[in-house]
């Protein structure tokens, strides 16, 4: 009696699980189809198709094919800015996080002051500061350098919270075990806490990188960094084809975002699989 009811229970849960799985798959298929439809609609809007009085936007194909390679060269510049900036931003974020966790008042103050100052002012203003304001003091930075400094400092401040949470996410017992073994505070942080915090930190830093891909376009406002947006604006304005040029730029930013989001989600999966 008990055996049969147990078996019935098992098959029932199996049935429910199968049904849930099927529903989930159905939902996903519908999402994909809708995406394709929406994308087709978007393309249609720019297709130049005419239906009586209704007409969609007409793009200049020859302009696009002529200048697309020029704009594409900006991808390298954009990626270069972002990779260098995320690197320095991570270092700054780590230092700011350690400052935030410090019991030494001046260090704590320095970290919070930095974060507050950066978060309290617009990124575009910060970029202009490094590029346009410093020359008044006799310091002339190339656009690229000014852009990287501005992005690094800006993202470093925002990312300090990620690093702080990552460090605090490592359990107190880990620190105690290291201290009990005779390790110093510094050794404990370097050898035990930070390597574990790194795991928590990588996925959100990936998110920040993806956001930076787009924010880096602000650097083009200096006029001296030939990234995607700068190139699009230049050829668009010169030929009165800003619409086409910006669409190409938008396509690149979107594509980069999709690519790095895919990489990031893979990385996240691999890290979460790790040895907990």
């Amino acid at each position: 009696m008990q055996v049969t009811s147990a078996r019935d229970g098992a098959s029932l849960t199996q049935l429910v699980m199968k049904q849930q799985e099927r529903e989930h798959r159905n939902f996903q298929i519908k999402v994909v189809i809708s995406w394709i439809a929406l994308f087709a609609l978007l393309l249609f809007l720019f297709s130049g198709f005419r239906l009586g009085d209704l007409k969609t936007i007409q793009l200049d194909g020859s302009f696009m094919s002529e200048w697309a390679p020029f704009i594409a060269e900006g991808v390298v510049v954009t990626l270069e800015i972002c990779f260098i900036s995320i690197f320095f931003a991570s270092i700054l974020a780590l230092l700011a996080a350690l400052g935030r966790l410090s019991h030494v008042a001046p260090l704590y103050a320095l970290a919070t002051f930095y974060v507050s100052l950066i978060r309290g002012t617009p990124l575009l203003l910060q970029i202009f500061f490094w590029f346009l304001a410093l020359p008044q003091l006799g310091i002339v930075l190339p656009g690229m350098v000014a852009g990287v400094i501005a992005l690094s400092l800006n993202y470093g401040a925002y990312m300090s919270e990620i690093f702080r949470a990552g460090i605090q996410g490592v359990s107190k017992g880990q620190r105690e075990a290291a201290l009990a073994l005779g390790m110093t505070q510094g050794q404990t942080m370097r050898r035990i806490v930070l390597p574990q915090a790194f795991r928590f930190v990588v996925p959100p830093v990936g998110n920040e990188f993806i956001a930076m891909l787009k924010d880096s376009s602000l650097v083009s406002a200096t006029g001296f960094v030939q990234d995607i947006l700068w190139r699009a604006q230049k050829v668009g304005r010169a030929n009165f084809h800003t619409l086409e040029a910006l669409l190409i730029a938008a396509a690149w930013y979107w594509a980069l975002t999709l690519i790095f989001s895919a990489i990031q989600s893979r990385l996240e999966k691999r890290l979460s699989r790790g040895d907990r």
């Binding site: 017992g173 105690e176 075990a177 290291a178 009990a180 073994l181 005779g182 390790m183 050898r191 574990q196």
Partner: peptide, 29 residues
């Protein structure tokens, strides 16, 4: 601390290190 060893209720092994590396971490550093 160098002359006392401690064992915790929650083990507190270092999850990012192999068993052997857990053991040699403190002697090395």
């Amino acid at each position: 601390r160098l002359c006392t060893g401690m064992v915790f209720q929650e083990f507190n092994l270092f999850p990012h290190l192999s068993v052997l590396d857990n053991l040699i971490e403190a002697p090395l550093t």
